[in-house]
Write a protein that binds this DNA or RNA. Sequence first.
DNA 1: TGACTTAACGAACGGTCGTTCCTAAAATTT
DNA 2: AAATTTTAGGAACGACCGTTCGTTAAGTCA
Lengths: 199, 199
Amino acid sequence: MSKGQQTRAAILTEALRAASVEGFQGISIGMLADRLKMSKSGLFAHFGSKEELEKALLDEAAQRFMETVWQPAMKAPRGRPRIEVLFRSWLGWSLNHEDLPGGCLFVALASEVDDKPGPVRDHLAELQNQWQAMLTRSAHIAVQEGHFRSDLDPRQFAYDLQGIFLAMNYYRRLLRDATAVERAEDSFRSLIERALPLH
Amino acid sequence: MSKGQQTRAAILTEALRAASVEGFQGISIGMLADRLKMSKSGLFAHFGSKEELEKALLDEAAQRFMETVWQPAMKAPRGRPRIEVLFRSWLGWSLNHEDLPGGCLFVALASEVDDKPGPVRDHLAELQNQWQAMLTRSAHIAVQEGHFRSDLDPRQFAYDLQGIFLAMNYYRRLLRDATAVERAEDSFRSLIERALPLH
DNA sequence: TGACTTAACGAACGGTCGTTCCTAAAATTT
DNA sequence: AAATTTTAGGAACGACCGTTCGTTAAGTCA
C-alpha cells in the first residue's frame, strides 16, 4: 500500500469515528487535519471536496458493515440461525465503541441527510434499501427452510427488526438507558417466536 | 400579545420548521433572519444566544407535542382506547407537513445531540424520558383496566411502540417508502394483539 | 543515483458563523 | 402629546468554513 493510500485509510478511519459522533455536518476538514496532525490542504487533496469525502466515508462504512455484520451471518446455516447471527452482529456493529464511538453511522446520518437532495442522500438511501432487502431476503429464506411460518411477510419482518434496532439506538444513545440492549433482545425473541410455525 | 411576543412566536414557528428539516446544526441566525425578512441582530436579540434559541425551540415543540398528541389521548377512555388514540395522534404529529416539514423534530434531533453534553442534550433527553414514562404509564393503566394481559411489561410495551414509530420515520423519510405508515399500523395491531389477555 | 511522480504544506480567498455595540424607530405607558 | 421602554437595524468583530494555488518534500521507480 502506497503512502497516499495509507494516509487516506487513516483519514477515513478517523473521519468515521468523528462522523459517528458529530454527523457529516459536524466534521470539518480543519478538525480532521488537526486530529491527524496534518494540514487542511494536505488532507483535502485526498478527496477534492468535502462531498467526495462524505461519499468515501459511506463506502468505507458500507464495506466495514458488510464485513462485520453480513459476512458472519452468511457463514451461518440458512434460515433462522442466520437471522440470529445477523441480529447479534448487527448489535455488535452498533456497540463497537472503538470504531464508532457515536454508534451506528447510518442511524446518525439518516435524519441529517434525509431532507438534503444530492449524491450523499442517494448513496445512503441506496445502502439502506439494500440492507432492508437483505433482511427481507433472509426472512424469506427462513420461510423456505421451514423455520418460519409460511404466511410470514418477510418485508414486515425486516421492518420490525429495523424498529427494534432503532429503538435500541435511541434508548442507549439519547436516553442513556443501560437496559437498551436487553430490551432489544427481548423484542427480538418475541419477533422470532411470532415468526415460528404453529405447532 | 405585545409586538415582541408576536415576533418571537413567528421566529419559533419558522425555526421549528427549519429545524425539523435541517436540525439545530443546520439552522443559523442569518438564515432565519432572511426567511423572516428581518436583521440578524434583531432576531438574535430575542434569545441572546443560539443555545437559548435551541432551548426555546425544544420548549415550543414539547408544548405543541402535548397539545397534538397527549391531550387528545387524555380525552379518550383509559386503557386500550387511549393507547389507540395516542398512537394515531403520534403518527399525525410526525406527518404534519405544515408545521414540521422534516418530520418529528425529536427524532431529527436525537442523533444530532446525543453525544453533545450540555443543556440542550439534557433538555431533549428529559423530554423523551418523560414521553417513555407516559407511554409506560398508559400501558400500565390498560393492564389495570383489564384491557391488557396482567403479565405485560409496560416498559417493554413502550420500547416496542417507540421502535415502531422510529421505523416508520426511517422508512418514510430516508427510504421514501410509501408503505411506511401502513407497516407501522400493522406492527401496532400486532403489538396490541400480543398485549391482550388470553381468552 | 537520477528522473519523475505523488503527497503534503503554508498562505490566502471569499463566505458565513455567532455575537457585540450603538443607534433609530416603533410600541407602550404616563 | 410627552416620556419611556421595547424592538429592530447596521456595521463590524474574530473565528472557522471549504477551497485554490504555488511550492517544497517525500516517495517510487528506471
